[in-house]
Design a binder for these strands. Structure first.
Lengths: 190, 190, 190, 190
DNA sequence: GATGAATGAGAATTCATTCAT
DNA sequence: GATGAATGAATTCTCATTCAT
């Protein structure tokens, strides 16, 4: 099935997002041109603009997708009984999200934080969601160290994609190890 | 003292590096133009090119500077008696390096990994130094988890600059907490 | 009819080639900027880059066009019965080609040989075609002098554009004289 | 003997001319930067400007040197008895001049005619000298063809450097052949 | 006789974006 | 839904040249 045929049946818009995310993650946001995205899909630049108003718009759509899953997790978590058990479960679900497209997404976000900061002055609300997620992972009156631990426990999972390269172990092994360490970092008291 | 006067006494080349690092870290490598750097220093773009052959060349000089300090640490560490005590000390010295210009440097490196990967196919040898540093921090026959821990114990310190923003604590408090957590991550057995 | 209207009906790409060849021939390749070409056509530099990937690319297109006509001549000649008569005919056809756009083309090529050598490491195959043309013009076991004569008989025609300037005769008169001399240079024996 | 030592004893100004001519001939006038010339000599660009007021100035000095020898030839020839014998002798002396630095010089001049035309609106008088040389080579009331022949007989010799490349014969063999053909081209009548 | 530092002008090229069809 | 042609603004980089020391 050629690129054109693929598009015919599978939502050009979705395809653009997939390709764009891959290129953004691999070469960086600024270094990825609309031309490059269009060429990968064998469509014209103008076609891109039919589906997305601008390059930033593609990013916003990408972040929005990630945001939905995060928001779902946050909402669910906030309805549960707080405590160490919940924290472990949240971490586990976060890892599940990451295992999917999420890892690539976070690789992109981490590696392009600066560009993103200037694109989305967080109208997307991702920062807000993360804040609530951190709150759930942090016991009341937590020390600065514990607050940092909460942030790191999430970050550890996201870092897998970046740190994996020089370790000789499969990505799955590494992700498993990351889940373990992540859990250890979690503040232990209620 | 005007910008011109300041330059007269303080090595234009060094000034360029300082300003460039700040801009790269704040706005990203690709988003920082030679024009922007030149304007900050009140010199012309051409003057920039008198001191550095290219934009990439500035980055290389920046990385080389960081590399020197890393290499010194590695060399010193490799001459010591291995063991948990050394690992703690290495971590502590790493934090010292980072506290200086280093933090900004690592913020820049993390936030622009992709751009960097394409600029320095590690001819600079930073990756090699880090590998040796990891080796020192990792006991022989370490598990994958322990290998990851070693990497994270360094990363935690570098992440301070990025994660600090939403925590309400001074940068120093946060760095102190980071040192603590970093030490905890270190593999305990000899 | 304004420049814009003219373009509408006459293939911008072709127009660019015509204008570029004229400027290259008149002012030299390096001395002709993309800006100059664009201005002549009342289009923007960016429009130029829509049609040609680079300045060199324009040259390559120009050479390719010349190459086609040369290749046709070579192919035809190689299918004919060799001998003095063929050689005269080849020379005559060469002059015909040159009379068209060709003269300007060769003026450009001669006057910019060095630049060209570095642009087309003869992937275009022009050198190969000329070699075959020389072979046709040279009897078997020709002396060095005769080999040189073959080359000169072609060159004489191409030189017209360059040498004409200070002679007080029309370009047509000169070309006629050149054809004559060219024929005389041809090795006489079979 | 290093480059610096060489300069100490051998007139920097002369060295600059030699190097510049080589670079101009090899890479073209516009494509040869002052930087490139300076680097070849292991001196600074500024030093170049100590010896020559500008890049064009180097060219003018180069042409002036060639002009002297041409002018001498012209002057001598104009004092001789005209006729076929003189014409042959002139041609021969021209070939002698060319054999020296001259060939490189003419390769440079031919390959950069356009640039030269714009640099020296013949204040150097080379064109004038050549005109007189042509007059000597051309019998009174010569046909257009004969006038062209005169020009070609000189050109043939200058072309050697350019056409030699694909012939498998030594440069000396080729030059000898060129002298021969050149003489044949000369108008025969008085 | 020469250098180090700097400049202003201009080069080629790339980019996100637009719009009539 | 998509294309071909074009634009304006920006980018990296190079060049000839200058001048105080």
């Amino acid at each position: 099935m050629g690129a054109a045929a693929a598009r015919k049946m599978g939502g050009t818009r979705a395809q653009i997002q997939t390709v764009a995310l891959r290129l953004f993650a691999d070469h960086g946001y600024e270094a990825t041109s609309m031309r490059a995205i269009a060429e990968q899909l064998s469509i014209t630049k103008a076609a891109l603009y039919y589906h997305f108003a601008s390059k930033e718009d593609i990013v916003r759509a990408l972040i929005a997708a990630m945001l939905v899953r995060t928001a779902e997790l946050v909402q669910w978590a906030e309805e549960q009984e707080p405590g160490p058990a919940l924290r472990r479960e949240v971490l586990s679900r976060w890892a599940d999200i990451m295992q999917d497209q999420g890892l690539r997404m976070f690789r992109f976000l981490s590696a392009n934080q600066v560009a993103m900061r200037e694109i989305t002055p967080d109208k997307s609300g991702m920062a807000a969601q993360l804040k609530r997620l951190f709150a759930i992972l942090t016991p009341p009156n937590a020390s600065v160290a514990d607050q940092l631990r909460a942030r790191l426990s999430l970050a550890v999972i996201n870092m897998v994609g970046m740190t994996a390269s020089d370790l000789d172990a499969s990505e799955d092994e590494i992700l498993a190890a990351a889940r373990l360490i992540s859990a250890e970092l979690l503040p232990k008291q209620s």
